[in-house]
């Protein structure tokens, strides 16, 4: 209870929460306000924003309504943000917990695997996965999750390594608790706060990764994605730059919202000397 109140005392954290709520509302309202397929022809191409009352954010070079694409695009960004982040964080926690708790050879093997994922540029790995498994939106979401787990894994491992020899864990083990209970009910709750905060970084990165893929035309062409729209608008960048600018601002604000919420959570969950 107190945590939530402390969160609300931080103005930038509130701003983040409000921005995030707006994105959620866009996603929820997409079908109500723009029931038509956002990728279908809607009117004359390249109408500037506010020039036509029907298209208040204008139309792109294929004559599609930009506002409709922004609303529907919010769904993709949130989907990527939530699902890919969940995959990455759950995978990361499992790998990190096992490596950090058991140590020794298991740790050595898992860490070499983690190193491998970190040495290989994650965008390159993403390109490979898309090249092999195709660019359906499900594939893209899973692929982004698959390339994002190493950092949460390292973080979880570090927390587990520092916690596993704490006296309260030793005491619980001596009380007769088995490994699974020690990992999940004694250590994990104490290791979780920094990982939860880090999840906001993973989410921000995931949204950015998807938009970059879509920009390069490698994401699913059949769903409305902000990155896709930017990629489309590139050919008319010199004169009708708004086609690129508007979805970019949408991405920026979404990622900003996620980061601000993450920082707010950090101040609440990991109270530090930072303030004074």
């Amino acid at each position: 209870m107190h945590a939530f109140q402390r969160y609300l005392r931080n103005p930038s954290a509130i701003l983040g929460l409000v921005l995030l709520l707006v994105v959620v509302l866009l996603a929820l309202g997409a079908d109500v306000i723009f029931p038509r397929n956002p990728l279908a022809l809607a009117g004359r191409p390249l109408q500037w924003p506010l020039a036509n009352a029907r298209f208040w954010l204008g139309t792109d070079n294929l004559g599609r309504d930009i506002a409709a694409q922004i609303f529907h695009g919010a769904r993709i960004s949130l989907l990527i943000g939530v699902v890919a982040t969940s995959i990455a964080v759950v995978l990361g926690i499992l790998v990190g917990a096992v490596a950090g708790y058991y140590g020794g050879l298991i740790d050595e093997v898992l860490m070499r695997l983690t190193d491998a994922f970190q040495i290989l540029p994650n965008f390159l790995l993403l390109l490979l996965l898309i090249a092999v498994f195709g660019s359906h939106i499900e594939t893209v979401v899973i692929a982004i999750g698959m390339v994002s787990w190493p950092a949460p894994a390292r973080l979880t491992r570090a927390e587990f390594m520092s916690l596993r020899h704490r006296e309260f864990v030793e005491a619980a083990r001596l009380s007769g608790l088995g490994d699974l209970r020690l990992i999940f009910s004694e250590i994990l709750p104490n290791a979780l706060p920094p990982v939860i905060v880090y999840a906001s970084v993973v989410m921000a990165t995931a949204i950015l990764l998807e938009s970059a893929l879509a920009f390069l035309n490698l994401s699913d062409p059949n769903v409305s994605s902000w990155g896709n729209l930017i990629g489309q608008g590139r050919s008319v960048l010199r004169s009708e730059w708004y086609v690129c600018a508007i979805p970019g601002i949408a991405i920026l604000l979404t990622v900003l919202a996620v980061s601000l919420v993450g920082q707010g959570l950090n101040d609440v969950l990991n109270p530090r000397l930072d303030q004074q």
Binding site: R166, F168, E170, A171, A172, L174, G178
Partner: peptide, 22 residues
């Protein structure tokens, strides 16, 4: 050992670190 450990128990040093804060 998990069964026998009942017979030998331990008290730890650190009054803060030896109790799970959660």
């Amino acid at each position: 050992w998990q069964r026998e450990s009942r017979r030998i128990q331990m008290v730890f040093q650190d009054p803060f670190g030896s109790l799970n804060p959660r």
